[in-house]
């Protein structure tokens, strides 16, 4: 077992533990903090997979923006649910059972697939992945159109978010 593998297993275990905390803790604030931990874990996995760019993006976008936004929302709605009561819907066992079943059967099916045991190829050191990615995002014969559409989507979400969250009674 190499050092990278040990790091991976440790990070994966930590991430999964944090994810379980996200969905099981009673206090919303604690589960939001656990979410941040899980997101950091995913960022480390990204780095292990050789994409420093997305590891950094993960920290900036998910932790810096999304998780903080969620924490704000938790604070704004704090007094709506008391942590004394269970945070689970009735019937959550069915959800757990279904998820577990689907998980194990997918792992079982995947284990029969030859690509499942692939080991990584060495990346060509002369190719700068970020440069190629950036060029293909702006190339009309590449992903220029999807990229522009994503920017429109973000704009629409921005405007929609402002509009929905605005207090209409006070206008």
């Amino acid at each position: 077992m190499t050092a990278v593998q040990i790091v991976f297993l440790a990070v994966a275990a930590l991430t999964l533990a944090a994810a379980v905390m996200v969905v099981s803790l009673r206090r919303m604030m604690q589960s939001a903090l656990a979410l941040i931990l899980a997101l950091v874990g995913v960022a480390v996995i990204f780095a292990l997979l050789g994409s420093g760019f997305f590891a950094v993006s993960q920290v900036v976008v998910y932790i810096g923006a999304i998780a903080i936004l969620i924490i704000f929302a938790v604070m704004l709605t704090q007094n709506s649910m008391s942590p004394e009561h269970s945070q689970m819907n009735p019937g959550f066992l069915y959800a757990a059972l279904g998820s577990a079943l689907l998980f194990s059967s997918l792992v079982f099916i995947l284990s029969m697939w030859v690509g499942f045991y692939a080991i990584p190829v060495n990346l060509d050191p002369s190719v700068d992945t970020i440069t190629v990615l950036g060029l293909s995002l702006t190339d009309p014969q590449g992903f220029a159109l999807p990229f522009e559409i994503v920017s429109v989507l973000l704009l629409a979400a921005l405007i929609g978010g402002i509009y929905i969250a605005r207090d209409h009674h006070r206008d």
Binding site: Y94, A95, L102
Partner: peptide, 20 residues
């Protein structure tokens, strides 16, 4: 909405098993 999601999950589980 969550109940619908639960139904969907189980439909996927059952139909996936049948197909497999």
């Amino acid at each position: 909405i969550q109940q619908y999601m639960l139904y969907t999950l189980w439909v996927i589980v059952v139909s996936g098993m049948v197909v497999f």
